[in-house]
Design a protein around this nucleic acid. Sequence first.
RNA 1: GGUCCCAUCGUCUAAUGGUUAGGACAUCACCCUUUCACGGUGGUAAUAUGGGUUCGAAUCCCGUUGGGAUCACCA
Length: 476
Amino acid sequence: MKVRTRFAPSPTGYMHIGNLRTALYEYLIAKAQGGDFLLRIEDTDQKRYVEGATDIIYNTLKMVGMNWDEGPDIGGPVGPYVQSERKDLYAPYAHKLVELGGAHYCFCAEREKELDEDGNEIICKFEDPCKKIPLAEAKARVAAGEPYVIRQTINQTGKSKYEDKVYGVIEIDYDELDEGVLLKTDGFPTYNFANVIDDHLMGITHVVRGSEYLPSTPKYNLMYDTFGWPRPVYVHLPPVMKDAQHKLSKRNGDASFQDLLAKGYLPEAIINYIALLGWNPGTEEEIFSIKDLEKIFSVDRLNKSPAIFDIIKLTWMNGVYIRNLSSEEFYRLAEPYLADLPSNVDKKALALVLQPRVETLGQIREQTDFIKELPDYAPELYVNKKMKTDIEVAKAVLPAIKEVLSKQTEWNNDALFAALKSLAEAKGLKNGQVLYPARIALSGKETTPGGATELAVVLGREESLRRIDKAINKLA
RNA sequence: GGUCCCAUCGUCUAAUGGUUAGGACAUCACCCUUUCACGGUGGUAAUAUGGGUUCGAAUCCCGUUGGGAUCACCA
């Protein structure tokens, strides 16, 4: 049977990392077996709907190359793919489940959380009195227009059992299971119910979701069984954590895909990194495109313990992707970050020296701020033991540098480097004793994208000479 | 609190009864170098804990500890 998986987000805001990773694994499980990946929007909670959220979902998936085979925008044989558009479809199944003895009508008021004297929530299992109402009587009340919900009926005793692809056999006592609402007063299904119906109707073979559903899965199985439908293969995923205690969450502004993009992370790097958060290929390679992953992904190598999201390793990996870019491609990506530099700056030359030096595009700004304006720097910057330079050396050599540079006709890196190198030889100095002071005079910074002559090329002749002049005056 | 799940370097992970417990990020040192990076080489660093089973345990079993999840007319 052809593998079919689905990504079923609710449109409640931006895409957070844990969500994206779930989508990725769903996509890969399907693609690794030549199966279909579907997109379904779960908007049964009208209160939480956020305008524009579905576009974020579409854009994110497209940007990272997770193309869906069926979905709200492109349709498919088992649509519609938005739950609110499927609304009328659920109630008949709910009523059918009542007939089959898997559910019952309930007329209780909405449950409110009870708190004890310390303000802690009292946890107790809900015993639904409506379960005992004879079906005929319940139907009469429904027919009379009394508001009702349909609640799952759980009469089984003993242990429920199922196998999860990553966690193995899970056994839970039926006693622990709550008789949850399936169809709400407003006629909408709850997530629990809509999921079962949709997954079955859409022919989903592998249900992939967070491990928080591990304890409630027996309830789903009960419904599949009562309807006489085959249970899907379950793949529960451990959470992505912010630290040892906390899950990465939408609240508290934890990194979302959009945040990372804004900071200059590449979609390819993000996908590569999160693929490895909870899965490994079994080899020592770790740089993979999504196409590579489609070939090698396997559920067997999924991990069951939570993984902490480590932005430092992501940053390193992003650097790898940046360095692997062609210089043209890097320039294209870097250009927006170079936009407010003076017009005389040779941005292409600058991009060339920047590429091996940044790990995110966002770092371009901080590395190039000195170009627009020479920062006010301390003379002590001229002191460097390894280069054997200090303020006196700088004082002596800067005027000579100025003279050489002002005579320079060819203003490119090789020519400038040759000129300064012969200056050092003529003066009996080490290269560093000329180049280090020149670099400081040009940038006013301890670390810079490139050496002295590279900076001179970027700044241009006029600005370079002006800055060296300024340095001479500063030290005088 | 009941139930379920998890536990290897700081982090991501490999090792499915026999390895000097491997790799990557981070960190440290050195080399390269026109600073800083990049690149190269090397180092520090882990099986939570106590019992079993076994010739042999990170690996299997039990307890302990620690952490997470779940118990909504949210998904």
